[in-house]
Amino acid sequence: MAVFHKTKDLTSKPFHYCPGCTHGIVHRLVAEAIEEFGVSEKTIGIAPVGCSVFAYDYFNFDMAEAAHGRAPAMATGIKRVHPDCLVFCYQGDGDLASIGTAETVHAACRGENITIIFINNGIYGMTGGQMAPTTIMGQKATTCPNGRSGINGYPIKICEMLATQEGTYYAERVSTHNVKQVLNAKRAIKKALKNQIDKKGFSIVEVLTNCPTNWHMSPQDSLKYIEEKVILYYPLGIFKDKDAEVKNA
């Protein structure tokens, strides 16, 4: 008896991601979660601009590829036409937290019943390692070669910000730096997708990931960097969960 199989919701196309990058893990978690809910045939995904721009080649669903930062707006249009489909956005930090901040915040404020998987690796990977809106203080990038300092402004905290908005149903930050965290990330992703299936509203899971190539680290060191540095600025946990608010009321 097989104890493990590759989810049918990922295609057989080899990932183009760099060795050691955790994008592939998060792709798998999302695809597995959707398969486990049995809604694969009623799922529409939206790929961003950035490293995961080719996500439509990997996720085995009907897929759209949005303009940079516009995935939540595009998802809104799709969801309004197919309210019974599961609609998810897969977006990186430049896409979601910089050029697409307005789309993200207002999709949340509308309580749009979509799920966003937000990949935060603190860097513009696809374009070669420029500073991201989430590059942490002191972290080097090609456009802050001496490390991010006050002169560059401060990293944006998306989950904390969205937690202040009435329209947000669920916002959690998770990580991929070890097996325990990956399993926890899957739990959060499943919850965010289930919220949509249950028509509860806007859910976002921010996933801390690595970028060995542009962080100029070995894969192991990059995971250690998340654990030892990134989490200090971007603490893990649930920032908003209206399920809990209902229970506590």
């Binding site: 303009a67 516009r70 707006a73 595009m74 809104t76 249009g77 799709i78 789309e103």
Partner: peptide, 12 residues
């Protein structure tokens, strides 16, 4: 956002 909502709705 409006034109990208149109993009999504029309794509659907």
């Amino acid at each position: 956002s409006a034109i990208n909502m149109v993009y999504g709705a029309a794509a659907a």
